[in-house]
Write a protein that binds this DNA or RNA. Structure first.
Lengths: 239, 239
DNA sequence: TTGTTCGGCGAACACTGTTCTACGCCTCGA
DNA sequence: TCGAGGCGTAGAACAGTGTTCGCCGAACAA
């Protein structure tokens, strides 16, 4: 009784390997993250994700509201591993920096994910945990509540902005070319252009030409972060 | 000899009002800016701009390299009106703030133009003029060269990031709805969600709930800008 | 066994930036 | 005055995008 009838050729035969496990949101986020890491955010399209799962784009919409939600899920997963230290009043500045560095590292680790992170208020569990942790550290450091609250907003903005800007260079590289080389040439071109400007109109800029292009991404990030925290520490109240 | 032959009906007759003035880059930027202000950055597509000029999208490519260049031209025009004050050593902080406020104002005045401003190093004439002006003011204020150079980079990043984030709320408004109302509801929702979090896990966040959502966009921008400059002033050298 | 619901998904819609290519007008040299 | 280029114009097409419609099959409830 296992003998099957031959399929009538006029009846469009269905797909043979139909024994597929059903889609889940986790699977979708998985392959989306893999594509993101391998080829960048622009490659993460609904069709591409669906294709990687051997299905059509419409199938994804049963598990994900739209592309925006998919990107939010990516951000949430990427930022998941941030650990918030126990507040130590003597090290509040370093602790704040440590959290900021972690967030930035998680963003830049996954290509140009920062572009997605800039859209929308992060209300995920990890985001509120980080906020809570920052507030605790700043309170231990003697920062007044109003300034601490606004600082969370501003430092998130700074981190996202920095990661976003940094991702722009990466997405400019033409075609599997050497990234180091390309960035060097790019900045070299701008630098020599600045060098060719009329000295009487741009004396300070020409004077500081070397400074402007010195320092790696990490150093510049650190500098800005330090500026924000030095500024914040001027509000410090030591009772 | 002015008598024209009647057009043969089988020959698809050409457009009658052909007496059009030729396209220029300025015209293109004009209508692109008009569309941007009226309907936001997403509405600025090559087809839309071409349609507004009664032509096809291909025609634009004779005057503009690609869409990226068109957006750069928009940013350049928007940032054109920034005036850089003569350096006054006693007011260097206020002068820096004044420049930053102008740039931000020009960005937020034109819908979500900030999204375009985040892409690429601004090497336009106005951009280098602003850089030169900032360096002059900081030198007058006694800021060392290295810190001043990096500060230009960081404060541009901060301004663009703030304007970009602010533009996100605006592009979220569903359909010609009251913007004020929508933003209030949106933040109200988040606020009440935060208020419903377990107090033992998020004591500080619940404690600072009012602070977190207080203050208009301008105030928060001013706060972050002030932080950066307070931080910078710690590097000050008064010889 | 019979609904009924629900996820999968092919097809289609309305877009996007960009390129190909033919065509018409203008200017320049003869 | 007349041809010859060259250049800007623009229709059509290409290869994509996010999203929706509606049909099909399977699984669960009555």
């Amino acid at each position: 009784m296992d003998l099957e009838m031959p399929v009538p050729p006029w009846k469009k035969q269905r797909k043979p390997a139909k024994a597929r496990q059903p889609l889940t949101q986790e699977m979708i986020v998985d392959v989306a993250m893999r594509i993101l890491d391998a080829e960048g955010l622009d490659a993460v399209s609904m069709r591409r994700v669906a294709q990687e799962l051997d299905t059509g784009p419409a199938s994804l919409y049963a598990h994900v509201e739209n592309k925006g939600e998919l990107l939010e899920l990516l951000v949430e997963r990427a930022a998941g591993g941030v650990v918030v230290p126990e507040p130590d009043p003597d090290r509040w500045m370093d602790q704040m920096k440590e959290i900021a560095r972690q967030i930035r590292a998680n963003l830049v680790a996954h290509a140009d994910l920062a572009k997605a992170a800039m859209a929308g208020v992060p209300t995920t569990e990890t985001a509120v945990s980080i906020t809570e942790g920052m507030l605790a550290i700043m309170k231990a450091g003697g920062i007044p509540g109003q300034q601490a609250s606004w600082f969370v907003d501003r430092v998130f903005l700074y981190i996202n902005g920095d990661a976003y800007e940094g991702s722009q260079w990466h997405s400019m590289i033409p075609e599997g070319q050497d990234a180091e080389r390309f960035v060097a040439d790019y900045f070299g071109g701008i630098k020599s252009y600045f060098g060719s400007l009329p000295p009487q109109r741009f004396p300070h800029l020409l004077d500081r030409l070397e400074d402007m292009f010195s320092g790696a991404d990490d150093e510049r990030f650190e500098f800005g972060l330090d500026l924000l925290l030095r500024g914040l520490s001027t509000y410090r109240e030591t009772p």
